[in-house]
């Protein structure tokens, strides 16, 4: 508490060097982006066909619902929506399986001994490596085809774009960090807290909701943030891989192949900004979950 206040107070004091003040930080922080933009501008001047004008890219970004003329017939907004939908399904599935299994493994040595060897062997396998074989295995079948059957699935337009292969590798990438951090979070619960509640006559359920989960939550949130970082990279890579007809990664790849560099750059920028936004969101969540932690230690 005191430490945090002291730091921020120190940063805004008038005696601080100019590099630590807001204006200094803005100036210094803008230097590298300015260099990048200058290089972009120089690239256009030197007549490289690959690099479009900044204004052209901006036009694409400002009209996200416009469907480009040929080949990929999906708007920027729709592409991003498809990507986010896949992310939500795959990541959600990972959370829904990793947290309960992590709680279980942390509680029972038997479950831990069953799960751990498999987890330790599987964890280092890069999910992108699995993508080709998973795509061969599941083909283009989607989440919708489970519900509606393979023939009817195409009617479910949006849900038909959520391929099982992608959901699977997203799950693979996100499961392990969340599982490990859940186990770690539960294991690090102070016995004194457990004992206090036991003496008050708490049930197992109350123990879980009042002590174990709140105590493990910062750790779980940290695992989720790591998992989300992995998921985002993996998903974009998966969308570039053949076997899909939509998504921001697909748009990036297709636009590049058809020499539509405005869309290529626009997709790159959207991927970057969305990834950043997601990370900021999860960072906030993590901080919220652990608000009591820094000062309590």
């Amino acid at each position: 508490m005191n430490g945090a206040n002291g730091d921020s107070a120190g940063g805004s004091r008038p005696t601080a060097p100019w590099t630590d003040r807001l204006i200094g930080r803005v100036v210094l922080g803008s230097l590298l982006p300015l260099v990048v933009l200058s290089l972009w501008w120089l690239g256009i001047r030197s007549g490289t066909a690959v690099i479009p004008h900044f204004g052209e890219v901006l036009q694409v970004l400002l009209h996200p619902f416009e469907t480009p003329a040929d080949l990929y017939s999906r708007s920027l907004a729709f592409s991003l929506l498809m990507t986010l939908l896949r992310l939500a399904v795959g990541f959600g599935l990972a959370v829904a399986t990793a947290v309960p299994l992590g709680l279980w493994a942390a509680k029972s040595r038997t479950v831990e001994h069953i799960l751990y060897p498999m987890v330790q062997v599987s964890r280092p396998i890069n999910p992108v490596v699995l993508l080709p074989i998973v795509t061969v295995f599941f083909g283009l079948s989607s989440v919708a085809s489970i519900v509606a059957g393979p023939v009817e699935a195409w009617r479910w337009d949006v849900w038909d774009q959520v391929q099982i292969a992608m959901v699977f590798i997203l799950w693979w990438g996100a499961f392990f960090p969340i599982f490990m951090s859940t186990v770690h979070g539960v294991r690090s619960v102070r016995t004194a807290y457990i004992e206090s509640l036991r003496l008050l006559g708490a049930s197992d359920r109350q123990m879980l909701t009042k002590v174990v989960l709140p105590h493990a939550l910062p750790s779980i949130a940290h695992g989720m943030r790591l998992a989300m970082g992995v998921s985002w990279l993996v998903l974009i890579a998966a969308e570039i891989f053949p076997g899909t007809r939509s998504g921001i990664g697909y748009m990036l790849c297709t636009a590049c192949k058809t020499s539509d560099y405005q869309y290529t750059f626009a997709a790159m920028i959207v991927i970057g900004i969305t990834g950043l936004g997601i990370d900021v969101l999860f960072q906030r969540m993590e901080r919220r979950a652990g608000h009591w932690q820094a000062a309590a230690r």
Partner: peptide, 29 residues
């Protein structure tokens, strides 16, 4: 169980609960 109060330097408040929730914990249980 439930009829013995136990207070040590470790067995104190749960840091993620407000004072109100900490005090009311036995009632909630």
């Amino acid at each position: 169980t439930g009829r013995i109060g136990y207070l040590t330097q470790q067995h104190t408040l749960l840091p993620w609960m407000r004072v109100r929730q900490n005090v009311g914990l036995p009632l909630e249980i």
